[in-house]
Amino acid sequence: MELIRLLGQNTLAGFNKLGRGTYFLTHTLAGFMELLPRPHLVINQMYSVGVLSFLIITISGLFVGMVLSLQGYYILSDFGAEESLGLMVAASLVRELGPVVTALLFAGRAGSALTAEIGLMKATEQLSGMEMMAVDPINRIISPRFLAGLIAMPLLAALFSMVGIVGGHLVGVGLLGVDNGSFWSQMQAGIDFEDDIINGVIKSLVFGFVTTWIALFEGYDTTPTSEGVSRATTRTVVNSAFSILGLDFILTALMFGD
């Protein structure tokens, strides 16, 4: 009996949270109009969300590309197909690893910071203070962060893929001696602009949207105690990772299953 009651309670609580999250999202999107006269709010957030994530994204991208190249070479050389190394590295980065790994790192680096920042604002009653002064905290605090996350994510994913391909080239051509010309020509023959690159950008946009939404909502919805903030930060990373990987499966099935 206790079990059934708990199950019902949790289900209702889940739907309740989803409803509040959706209301929060529409309010945030409506707040975009208010940002037009104050672009510096977004630029400030682009700095903390994008510029500060730049280093971790490029370094991870470089190493992921290098490892892909190394692993791919050992497998491909069994079939005498080392020339396809460029295609393999580029396809896996542009289609999958670029958007997904960037989104996971983004959730860990920028998403958790956003949750902690907004959660602390709520715990120290800064958000209530704003409401007292007739300033809408969602328009002023949440919307610029949301827009910044939405812009930064595809740029970071593109950077990740680019640096990864350069890393793969360094290892493949520089270290393992794959022919430079066939590395690029196989890549260019196999990667399609619309099918691969545009779809990769769409993926990263979706991931950016979901990650920033989760991070901001968890922060805004937190229990205003130090324990609540720490829990909300954990939930941001865990829920973002789940949603990114789940959505990636659905998007891949939709995009590449022809």
Binding site: I43, M46, F54, A158, L159, I197, G200
Partner: peptide, 27 residues
């Protein structure tokens, strides 16, 4: 300085997209 850094970041990101479009794909 922050404006400059954000500008650089956006420029790098767009350069990355151009690199993917021109060098990697058969566009």
């Amino acid at each position: 300085t922050q404006d400059t850094l954000v500008g650089l970041f956006v420029a790098f990101g767009i350069a990355g997209l151009f690199f993917l479009a021109l060098q990697v794909s058969n566009l």
